[in-house]
Design a protein around this nucleic acid. Structure first.
Lengths: 192, 192
DNA sequence: CCCCTTATAGAACATTTTGTTGCGAATCCT
DNA sequence: AGGATTCGCAACAAAATGTTCTATAAGGGG
């Protein structure tokens, strides 16, 4: 009973948003306009205006599309050090290599004045936090964690530092750094 | 021998940049244009164009002006827990209450495509990092630190988490949270 | 396979924003 | 007081931003 979507709609939608993401990466939010996307894709301006009457909507859709994370199955079979290295290694790769790492700052900035963009971030973040939390809870189940370890703080720390380094401070994320980071967290989390 | 600056120059400069900062806070980088600043200040467009032929320069100047931090004398008389609470409390206030907290995300985003903006961030960050580092080094001098404590990682953690919470995750920074944060860091840093 | 619906490209247009230039008036510096 | 500089303003030119219409093409249902 559901009428299938006109393939022309999804086609223009996809090509337009892909172009928008590309522009976003190379030149920043400022440059994402109906005109620019039209020029890059061949999709006519009038069509773009029909799809996204407001430029903000177009940008937000591009954000959402770019933010869609590769689903990561949490590794929770322990030990904690291994699980964390695994998970944070993936996060690190995502920040280094995928669109998200380049676009995230733009979304952050947009979130300051736009609630929709804020939602995109919140969704993305809470998902990542939940994944890391699962790792800690599994370690707790196995009885690896020290008495009274500040789990919430550790989860936050695990994620904060790589994001800070990459997005705010512009510092590199490599395996050597990751090793030290995980060591530090484990020093606090594990039984002595 | 140094020729004093024409007061008219500094006057227009200041009013223009203050307006630019205000626009930046309320509506984001996108909205900072010669036209908008002119409308808000009464300074004529032609004058603004004479001062900043390129809009990017205007925005960067606004960034720099907004990023100028209140100089904070480092508290390094110990003990570490007290010093850290003091320093991070100030950082927290700055993020919560000053222009910087609202504008930082915009600068981050601009930094993705603009090297000048990147410089603004780097300057600001390295100064803050240095301040926190001084706190740790003083504690080390006093012999408070545990053997082999990962000082660099701790410095990074101390600053990363508040920035992450405020700018990336949009979580609140309050004194209760701060207490836990400092506790966690001290648990790793101090002798048992 | 044909007909009806829907989406698109393109052009033509109005509107707004963005730069540029020249000049008289006001302000500053010496 | 006099010469230089800066300002505001108005008149422009150029480009970007929206809007609307029409012919064409593509899809979907019967």
């Amino acid at each position: 009973m559901k009428k299938s979507e006109d393939p022309r709609l999804v086609a223009t939608r996809n090509t337009a948003l892909d172009a928008a993401i590309e522009i976003l990466r190379m030149e920043g939010v400022l440059a994402v306009t109906h005109g620019a996307v039209s020029a890059k894709t061949g999709v006519s301006r009038s069509t773009l205006y029909r799809h996204w009457p407001d430029i903000v909507q177009l940008r937000n859709d591009a954000f959402k599309r770019a933010a869609t994370p590769p689903k990561i199955a949490a590794k929770t079979n322990g030990p904690l050090h291994a699980d964390l290295s695994w998970m944070l290694g993936i996060l690190m790769s995502a920040l280094n290599e995928t669109q998200w790492g380049q676009i995230a700052p733009q979304v952050m900035a947009a979130a300051a004045t736009d609630d929709d963009a804020k939602l995109v971030i919140n969704d993305f973040m809470s998902e990542r936090m939940a994944t890391v939390r699962a790792v800690f809870e599994a370690a707790n189940q196995r009885g690896e964690l020290a008495e009274g370890a500040p789990i919430e703080g550790l989860i936050e720390t695990a994620i904060s530092v790589p994001y800070f380094r990459k997005i705010i401070a512009g510092l590199p994320l490599d395996h050597e750094w990751l090793e030290g980071h995980v060591d530090m967290i484990c020093a606090l989390a594990l039984k002595k």
